[in-house]
Structure formats: structure tokens, C-alpha cells
Computed example of a mutant assay.
Amino acid sequence: MALQDRLRSSVIASNPRPPVFRTVAGLDSAYDEQGNVVAAIVVLDARTLEPVETVTARGTTDFPYVPGLLAFRELPTTLTALEKLTVTPDLLVCDSQGLAHPRRFGFACHLGLLTGLPSIGVAKNAWGEFDPPGDERGAFSAITLDGDEVGRALRTRTDVKPVFVSIGHLIDIETACAQVLSLTPQYRQPETTRLADRLCRQLLKELPA
């Protein structure tokens, strides 16, 4: 928690230069009760959403599950997978929180700082307060913590539960939401997340009993 508090001030919640996202990577992790961890990264062409590269890694952890400390459980195996990439993604899309976190330093922030790459968190559930956005695709509302906006509830499908977008590093919230909408032509979750999640589930099934 102290490390998160210390690193939080290093997050850059803006675009240092005009963003060009040619490739976008989805990252996901999963683990079992024995402490086995699997990580998957799927890099897509940002225009066609076709896969460019896929890598996986397996590891172990003895760090317990503690809400708000997800990065310390999953980052080591994720970084092992990242080192296998031959393509450097222009954007990292994490199935986790960024600034929308009790210490405003979720997994997406931690990963963005470690890699120096633009990163965002796209979570299935909100951490913070928000009003439901409009029902149409593209509608959004602010997620707040202690009165400060830390993310947005973004409707990616009309009349479907929103996703919860927050900045990780080196990107602003408007650009982050625009990228999420471009990655959700058919489903609620970004294609990056869907593919990485599917691969993680497969890897868990392949682990020895």
C-alpha cells in the first residue's frame, strides 16, 4: 500500500504526444487455489482487430488475494509474458482498474509505469461512485472517489451494462474511452479482453491437476 501511495504521483493522465494506436494489446491473468498463475497477452491490429501476436506465461505466487493489491499477485507473470513479445504495443488494455482504485493506483497504473507504455484499465465492475449512463452505446458517466473523477462508466452496447474505464498511464480519459469503443464493435468487453480471457481459461485447464 505504501508503494502504491508513493508511485501514484508518477502517473501521467494525459497524452504527452498525439496518440497513434496501430497495435493494441489485451492482458489478462488467472490463477488457481494452488497458487499457479497464468498470463496471456493478445496484440491486435487497432484498425482491423485481427491478431498480430499472442504470448503466454505460467508462474506461481504465494501473495494472497487482497482487494486493491492485484498487481502484486499477477504482475510478475504478466511481465514474463510481456518480455516474449516481438511487437511493442501502442496501448495496453488491462482487465483491471487504473486510477479507479482505493489508492488511485490499480494494476493498469502499475503496469504502465513499469513498461513506459500508454495503459488503461477496463473493468467489469466499478470501484467508486457513479450514476448509470444513458442507455445508448457511447453514453458515459463519471466514476468518482471523494468527489474526484477517476474514470467513466461507458456504455459499449445499447441497453447492456457498462464497462468501467480508468486511466493507467500516458493517456487521457477521452482518448481511453474512444479506444474502448473502437475495440467493442460487437460485444460489451473489448476484443482484446475477450481474447486474452479466453486464452487464460484455456491455460488454466491445461495445468496439471
Rank of each mutant, 00 (worst) to 15 (best):
A176E: 01
L154P: 03
R201P: 00
A139M: 02
S141W: 13
Q186Y: 14
D135S: 13
R152W: 04
I143V: 14
V160H: 07
L145T: 12
A178S: 15
L145Y: 09
Q202R: 15
S166P: 03
V165F: 03
R194I: 12
L181F: 06
A176K: 05
A176M: 03
R198F: 11
S141P: 02
T193K: 15
L204E: 01
L204M: 12
V180A: 05
I143R: 10
P162S: 08
Y187F: 15
A139E: 03
R137T: 03
G147K: 05
T158E: 11
L170S: 00
E206Y: 00
E136W: 06
D172M: 11
A176Q: 00
P185F: 06
G134R: 01
L181M: 04
R155M: 01
L204N: 00
Y187L: 14
T175A: 14
R188D: 12
D135H: 13
A142H: 11
R157S: 08
A139S: 15
P133V: 01
T156W: 11
V163L: 04
D159A: 13
D197P: 07
R137I: 06
R137H: 10
A178K: 13
E206W: 00
L145A: 12
S166Y: 03
Q179G: 06
P185H: 09
R198N: 08
S141V: 05
V165N: 02
P185T: 01
P133F: 03
C200L: 01
S166Q: 00
H169T: 04
D159F: 15
P190E: 03
S166K: 00
Y187D: 13
R137G: 07
D197V: 04
A178R: 11
R188W: 08
K161V: 15
T175G: 09
P162H: 04
L203Q: 11
T144W: 07
D172C: 09
F140V: 11
T158Y: 01
K205M: 09
L195P: 14
S141Q: 07
E174N: 15
R137K: 15
F164V: 07
D146C: 14
C177W: 09
V160F: 00
L181R: 03
T184I: 04
R188M: 13
Q189Y: 14
F164K: 07
H169Q: 02
V165P: 06
F164Y: 11
I173H: 06
P162C: 04
V180Q: 04
R157C: 07
Q202W: 06
L154I: 13
E149G: 06
R194N: 10
D146G: 15
R194L: 07
V150P: 15
A196V: 05
K205I: 06
E206N: 04
R194G: 14
